[in-house]
């Protein structure tokens, strides 16, 4: 049980590292805009969700908090991408 929990944390960490480096590479190397920004923001949302669910155990938190943080990260991602695209 304990081993399993810790391995899950390790997998989350590794995924976060891979996604971070991927997002950075896309930002540097993909020259089609605003596609690259859409990908970067989507990957940021994935990272945020990993931190919330794997590290902060949001799945065990009350429903109100789950709704709030999911809405928060969705709004942040869409808002930043949306306002970037219309600028």
């Amino acid at each position: 049980m304990k081993r399993f929990e810790e391995r899950k944390l390790g997998v989350a960490w590794l995924t976060l590292v891979v996604v971070t480096v991927t997002g950075f590479t896309i930002a540097e190397a993909v020259f089609i805009k605003p596609l690259s920004v859409a990908l970067v923001m989507a990957l940021s949302g994935v990272k945020a969700r990993l931190v919330l669910y794997r590290f902060m155990e949001l799945n065990e938190a009350p429903t109100g908090l789950r709704v709030f943080f999911n809405a928060w990260l969705l709004i942040c991602v869409l808002m930043i991408f949306g306002l970037y695209s219309v600028a």
Partner: peptide
């Protein structure tokens, strides 16, 4: 403390994307 620390991480994920990555190209 851990929850707070994860939020420091969480906020940085967005700050990094918004401040640094929107301008790299």
């Amino acid at each position: 403390a851990a929850l707070f620390w994860h939020v420091v991480d969480l906020l940085w994920i967005f700050l990094f994307a918004m401040l640094y990555l929107l301008g790299v190209q």
